[in-house]
Design a protein around this nucleic acid. Sequence first.
DNA 1: AAAAATCGGACTTTTACGGTCTGATATTTA
DNA 2: TAAATATCAGACCGTAAAAGTCCGATTTTT
Lengths: 150, 150
Amino acid sequence: MLRMSRLTDYGIVLLAQLAASPEAVPHNARELATATHLPLPVVSKVLKGLARQGLLASHRGAKGGYSLARRPDEISVAEVIAAVEGPIALTECTIGPGHCTQEPLCAVREPWHRINQVIQRALDQFPLSELLSPAADGATSSSGRLDRGL
Amino acid sequence: MLRMSRLTDYGIVLLAQLAASPEAVPHNARELATATHLPLPVVSKVLKGLARQGLLASHRGAKGGYSLARRPDEISVAEVIAAVEGPIALTECTIGPGHCTQEPLCAVREPWHRINQVIQRALDQFPLSELLSPAADGATSSSGRLDRGL
DNA sequence: AAAAATCGGACTTTTACGGTCTGATATTTA
DNA sequence: TAAATATCAGACCGTAAAAGTCCGATTTTT
């Protein structure tokens, strides 16, 4: 299935939500949870991770929350994936030496590395800004816009 | 980690092994297991799956075994992945409607679909035959093909 | 008839994912 | 200063999927 962790998907959704909101005002986990219809504890966990990896700036205390650390066009999908679930590596040996017991005998290690690079490159060039759905256009810029219309 | 199932890796290794040997004669599971240093039951399981998906031709009985169903340059990495672990789908909603409860509200479903296509296309154009040749210009040719059609 | 294979599937074990919870710390507000 | 509201760090657990094993049936060759 070549699947990506669901947490990563949540991460993308949350970042997209933040990117869609015009102001630089931090949004807290509760807000984002209701806006995205995701359970609060999960949202909290994901945001924590993204903040630690430097994709989000966190502001503690009352009136605190999270805001994008960079502009949406300067954050790539590859970065988000790597932030949530570690480096992009289709096989274990792609991470680095010593992860696979068959390393010395393996014939396809180097080719896998090439394939991995292809994907890495594709995701590197996919900025967060391009994730904003064309259906939701920016005309509704009056209020917080944290409500995605039901 | 964006990781791929280990079984899929085995599948690639096994197919590469078959592609490397002068064709015609079928190779049985035991042979391939010793050649690739993988446990026999696993090899057997993977080969079965690949045969069922039409990537391998199976020959039962004594002197039987498996052989490639097509030429190595006519089998793509994408096909192998799909054969072992189902369709390439980064998120559940990529498989088809009805897999994700948040479908109607989700803002990033369509963008994910685009990303998925990028990867799909890249893997589609990566033939098994390119897994054998020791690189050289593989990376450049791959990046040359890497065209995100948006 | 015997040997050597695949075939189909059930089965067990293990890992890791998705999700929850709690206590500590920082910041604002009254 | 005290209370309220956040993030922060991490442990914790249940389930599901992955990884691997095994067996009986079937097919083919010798």
